[in-house]
């Protein structure tokens, strides 16, 4: 998917009104691929889709719904089916972040993190499988996190949800490989997005100090790796969780 010459590939990117998801959608659209944006509510994703279509000239559609709600996800996939009949690419990115020490996370906060990040990812992949089976060289990329592999104080619950995403990735790769569907994940480190905006300057400097490449990631750093994994260049890569973290796990 890295060049405008590539065959147009229909890709759904969940959680793509802003941040990493939007950067992924923009990267694909700029390469001329039809993209289906997704957001939890209709207004923001419709606006984002209109803006991206105007910016890139690509065919951009929008679907909306809470990924934690199976019926909503099923409805989203029916809309993709109506629009395109298939998916060549799926990016399971929709997620939320919350942090707090163990013993200080409320039950609803824990449940919501799992519902969106882990259950939502599962709903999305499961409901998309039959669209992917109709795709050309279909490829799935899920967005995990360095917190799912390395962990950090205050991030236990969030990290557990992202570890679930990594597990889902590996099992799905084994199961769907025989059907020609590749499944990989990226595990971003500290990315400059709204999710990270809650950090104060000192905390942000600490993150940078912990990163050998000496800066926070930009959403586009993640988007370029996702684009690679979706593309034919990664045709023999499946079941991998690729760190996009500037070496912070070292």
């Amino acid at each position: 998917m890295s060049s405008p010459q590539a065959e147009p590939r229909v890709t759904l990117v969940t959680g793509s009104t802003r941040g990493i998801g939007h950067a992924i959608a923009r990267t694909l659209a700029r390469a001329g691929h039809p993209v289906v944006l997704h957001g939890r509510t209709e207004g923001p994703v419709a606006a984002a889709a209109a803006a991206l279509a105007a910016e890139t000239g690509a065919k951009i559609a929008a679907v909306h719904g809470d990924v934690a709600d199976l019926a909503a996800v099923a409805a989203m996939m029916r809309e993709v089916h109506r629009l395109h009949r298939r998916l060549d690419g799926l990016v399971v990115n929709a997620g939320i972040h919350d942090a707090g020490p163990l013993g200080m996370m409320s039950g609803p906060a824990v449940a919501r993190l799992f519902q969106v990040n882990a259950v939502g990812a599962t709903h999305t992949l499961q409901e998309a499988v039959r669209l992917l089976r109709r795709g050309v060289a279909p490829s799935v990329v899920l967005v995990s996190s360095v917190m799912g592999t390395k962990g950090s104080p205050g991030q236990a619950v969030y990290g557990a949800t992202k570890a679930a995403v990594a597990g889902l990735t590996r099992a799905a790769a084994k199961e769907l490989g025989p059907a020609g569907i590749r499944v990989n994940a990226v595990a971003p480190g500290f990315v400059r997005t709204a999710m990270l905006a809650s950090l104060d300057d000192a905390a942000a400097r600490e993150r940078v100090r912990a990163t050998p490449l000496g800066r926070l990631a930009e959403p586009e750093d993640v988007a370029s790796v996702v684009s690679f994994l979706l593309s034919d260049s990664a045709r023999f890569v499946t079941g991998q969780v690729i760190g996009v973290d500037g070496g912070v796990v070292l």
Partner: peptide, 11 residues
């Protein structure tokens, strides 16, 4: 079945 009848079946 989905392909033959151009439908999408819920899980």
């Amino acid at each position: 079945i989905e392909d033959e009848f151009d439908i999408m079946i819920d899980t």
